[in-house]
Design a protein around this nucleic acid. Structure first.
Lengths: 224, 224
DNA sequence: GTATTATTTAATGTTATGTAAACATAATTA
DNA sequence: TAATTATGTTTACATAACATTAAATAATAC
């Protein structure tokens, strides 16, 4: 039986979510503030935590960071509950290591399908490899795909290798020779604009800001 | 207690920023348009104003200009909030007299560290400074940038190489031949004023005091 | 074998960067 | 002090470096 911990300061929310989740067959714990939530998380080790972002004293983001920094709780799935569609809090949330978010007002049906999705994801990849470290960009060489802000994206081979190289050391500038060597292999001769074009394709898919040009030197990958 | 005024037409933004700043211990005022913001600024004289650039009726740039032209408010720090793509507005913003800008979507943590930096700068300037145990200038060849008093600065290639050379041995005088050899490479012939021009550009960016001329000999880099 | 997708080349546009030239200023020497 | 020399500053221009797009080729799927 899968267990879920609800951390929210509003009684109504805890009650209504708890009711719906129990009806769905989950084991439910609740906590009305961050500290209490952290304790409960450590004690009960739930499969998923529903975490309100805006709470007095300790907010959800801080709670999430604390969860992540504790070995016991570091791998528990976290889903943020956030007011309206504040996309900034979404990003801050993912930075803190959230797996998903749901905006209030919460429709139980929506929430439940999201929860199922999260738990399905986590139970599927039970190997030690793809842990919950929801970075903004993760290279999964085994499945040959990139997880970009929680979204799985597929890339053609060259693009994948190129991105993979750049992202292997964020902020480091890779010069063209080095890139050619690593991605195309030594001895292979390709035209002058080949790298540019692939950079272009990558930028199209992951956003312009993520790959910076350093003129006369090379390119570097930057976490946003 | 330091006070901050938020001027933004979007309710959500005011709310979430206000929430985060209060939590951080600041006294927060808000205004939903330029005119209201100007009034509040004059009345409350905040230490810092967070100012949305894109607002109906009076935009942030105009608000900033008005602030600067009023003696009461002329010295209040201003930080623009701007949508990512419009880098034009960055420039216009600095022209109008902004102290910093932050691009949306806003990560509260980023914003808060920027705010602290701004306020530190402004409070530091009138009393004893020289706070940092931070190296005043660090060359980061891998990332190809220079960290100048904690701020990362990008330089074009020749400027970077030149600064890199000079800063490699502070106080040592490098003569022109040596500089040419190291930065331009042997055999390359460039005009007589080329080095000067590059020195000029460096001084523009890192301050005049840092590179000293030793007439008839060459240049040297000095930590302030 | 055809359709589709991936990769590369080629052609052209754009911009950052570097340089020279012209003149200004400061230091040095006669 | 005037003449000379060294450096500072600004402007404009050339071009290297990169971006972009389209179209050709190669690889893969259907």
């Amino acid at each position: 039986m899968e267990s879920i911990l609800i951390i929210d300061d509003e009684d109504d929310i805890r009650e209504i979510l708890g009711y719906n989740l129990k009806k769905e067959g989950y084991l439910v714990h609740t906590a009305s503030n961050g500290l209490e939530g952290l304790k409960s998380a450590e004690r009960n080790l739930p499969d998923l935590i529903l975490l309100d972002v805006m709470m007095p004293e300790m907010d959800g983001i801080e709670v999430c960071e604390q969860l992540r920094s504790n070995n016991l709780t570091a791998n528990i799935r976290v889903c943020f509950l956030t007011a309206r569609s504040e996309d900034y809090s979404q990003i801050a949330g993912f930075d803190a290591g959230a797996d998903d978010y749901v905006t209030k007002p919460i429709k139980p049906k929506v929430l439940i399908s999201r929860i199922k999705a999260i738990l399905r994801r986590s139970s599927g990849s039970d190997n030690s490899e793809t842990t919950s470290d929801v970075q903004s960009l993760v290279i999964d060489r085994e499945r040959y795909l990139v997880i970009l802000e929680g979204q799985e994206v597929q890339f053609p081979r060259k693009e994948f290798e190129l991105l993979s190289l750049l992202a292997s050391k964020p902020e480091k500038v890779f010069d063209r020779d080095h890139i050619l060597e690593k991605v195309w292999g030594s001895g292979v001769v390709v035209g002058d604009r080949t790298i540019d074009v692939h950079i272009r394709k990558l930028r199209e898919k992951i956003g312009n800001e993520r790959i910076q040009t350093v003129k006369g030197v090379g390119y570097k990958y930057c976490n946003k």
